[in-house]
């Protein structure tokens, strides 16, 4: 860990100005991923701008088309967001996704924005002695032909085959959340579906954010599908493990016919994967296990696998069916 200058930001605008003006500056919030990376030697900023004490810790309702939305400050801790009564009632997939991630201690520490911006846990990205295009562009991808059990099955490129690790991001992607971003040229909104990138030939870039952009809030719009939503995660350990695959799903039913459906997948791609083809196939159909399996199959056309990660295809298909049929039956899914 190289020597660091540390500045506690007075307000969001000055934080943005400080980081924008210094290519080797980084924001520090909960620190659960950044401090990890500092120690591993996979990032070496010269300046840390601490935004953890900025007053971005409110959860507020706002008027939105079709009801009341929720604006979540970037510094709201994962545990507080998961326990927030409005989230539990109207966006249960968000609460479930948070509770399926990390540990109680880490959820107290990790922030909403930081969760979305956490980086891959690919073992080669985290091992500075091995080639990795995401960590060091142009060095090659060690996960191709190496430890591939967690590798992506959708949207991978020859340069990077890893997956995005966040659970929260999957739920937010399914429920059409958007992030509020403060940059040098002011505030803008980015839909969650457009925040994270596929790797292409620039796997070093996880998101579309510019250097110095600060996520200040996340906005959760209301919907019937969000109210009837869940998050289903398959993993090795029963707790405290990253997803093998995960599904965020929301349903609006008219009898047993799908009026609206939201599906996003985790653990399968370099970004949370909104399964729009599957959603389109399900809308207007009767919600049956077979229908969901077929819709998922459609979404999985073009999936690429190796011996080590081929299991993800049946696993994500089945987990999608499980999440949707349980939602339809009014059963708890976890």
């Amino acid at each position: 860990m190289r020597e660091l200058e540390y500045v506690r930001a007075d307000d969001a605008a000055s934080a943005v100005a400080l980081v924008s003006g210094e290519p080797e500056a980084r924001f520090l919030a909960g620190g659960t991923n950044l401090v990890d990376h500092l120690k591993l030697g996979i990032t070496a900023p010269r300046l840390l701008v601490d935004v953890s004490r900025l007053p971005l810790d409110a959860v507020e309702e706002y008027d939105a088309p079709g009801g009341t939305g929720l604006r979540i400050g970037a510094n709201v801790r994962n545990s507080d967001l998961a326990a927030h009564p409005a989230v539990r009632a109207s966006w249960p997939a968000v609460s479930r996704a948070l509770l399926a991630g990390a540990s109680g201690q880490i959820r107290h520490q990790a922030t909403t924005a930081g969760n979305l911006l956490q980086r891959t846990r690919c073992v080669y990205f985290q091992d500075a002695t091995t080639p990795c295009n995401k960590r060091e562009p142009g060095t090659g991808c060690s996960a191709v032909g190496g430890y591939a059990r967690y590798n992506a099955v959708l949207g991978a490129s020859p340069d990077c085959v890893t997956v995005h690790p966040s659970d929260l991001a999957v739920a937010l992607t399914a429920l059409d959340a958007q992030v509020v971003v403060l940059g040098v040229s002011g505030e803008r909104r980015i839909p969650m579906t457009g925040l994270h990138r596929l790797p292409g030939d620039r796997p070093d870039l996880d998101t579309v954010l510019e250097h110095g952009d600060l996520i200040t809030a996340v906005e959760l719009p209301p919907s019937a599908a969000a109210r009837r939503s869940t998050y289903q995660k398959a993993r090795d350990r029963a707790s405290y493990a990253f997803a093998l695959v995960s599904v965020a799903a929301g349903l609006e039913l008219d009898g047993d016919v799908v009026r609206d459906v939201r599906i996003a997948w985790g653990g399968v791609a370099h970004r949370p994967w909104r399964a729009t083809r599957a959603e389109d196939a399900l809308r207007g159909q009767q919600l049956t296990e077979e229908a969901v399996l077929a819709a998922a199959e459609l979404e999985l056309e073009g999936a690429t696998t190796t011996d080590q990660n081929a299991y993800k295809v049946p696993m994500i298909r089945n987990t999608t069916a499980l999440a949707c049929t349980r939602l339809a039956a009014g059963e708890v899914s976890r």
Binding site: R121, V123, T130, G146, A238, S239
Partner: peptide
């Protein structure tokens, strides 16, 4: 522990990637 024979070392070299049982298990 997954040994990547190309490099020769164990690449699952921490407690997030070398899973041991938790309370929940």
């Amino acid at each position: 522990s997954y040994r990547d024979a190309r490099f020769g070392h164990i690449v699952t070299q921490d407690l997030a990637t070398y899973h041991v049982a938790t309370h929940a298990d």
